[in-house]
Amino acid sequence: MKKYFSFFRLRFSMGLQYRTAALAGIVTQFTWGAMEVLAFRAFYETDANSFPMSLSATCTYVWLQQAFLALFAAWLMDNELLESIINGNIAYELCRPIHIYDMWFSKSIANRLAKALLRSFPIIFIAACLPAPYGLSLPADPGYFLLFLLTLVLGLAVTVSFCMLVHVLAFFTISPRGLQMIFVSAADFFAGGIIPLPFFPKKVQFFMELLPFASMQNVPLRVYSGSMTEAELAKALGLQILWLLLLLAGGRKLCQYGEQKLTVQGG
């Protein structure tokens, strides 16, 4: 366990170094969020009755999404891992007494946390200063905030384990980058990255919420503003845990296969 923690620490401090990139990212994310809020405002002003949640909750969703983009954006994959499979540097990793999957998992988590840590606070701060209903509002109550934190961690873990699965697939395909792009764009859509899940038609939403992608950003961002009933919440939490376990087990198994295949073929 200790060695994975040191991978985590190394990666985390590496991620913290890119301060310029982080500042540029904050500017970008903030603009992105502002445009999103303006678009939702236009829809709200056109037809407020068709809104599935309050405008304030929607804006809060948008700002949290931008603030924690680094945690949940599937396209922010760790390219180093993919590269190491493509160019064969993975051979070094195989020589060490570690589980590749666990090492990559801790590295990815660290990478995302470091990025998010630099970016989230300034965005949250500025968004919180914006006038209601366009800014980031306070959580519904302290209990929901704690649940938000819990589901945030679970959502991050689900996201990373999904990305790991895509990485591991690189063992078995000749063009991992194209494949990655397809998975990433699908994940982004089904997770509510393009429009939040409540904005989908009811029937579509029902199915989408069962998919693993709904267990990523969708849950924490909605829990925060308290726009889920208790029953919905229990179901979402259960699904998060279920998907996490399934994705972890599947990823690890596949990774073992991949390693075997690699050693048999000699790269």
Partner: peptide
């Protein structure tokens, strides 16, 4: 194969945005 998969990926990225618009306009008429 990489070329066609990446092109397909590019297609899907925009296609998902299109789906977003489609679903959004089932809720809003304009």
């Amino acid at each position: 194969s990489s070329f066609f998969l990446t092109a397909l990926g590019q297609f899907l990225v925009s296609f998902h945005v299109f789906l977003g618009i489609l679903f959004l306009f089932q809720r809003f008429s304009n």
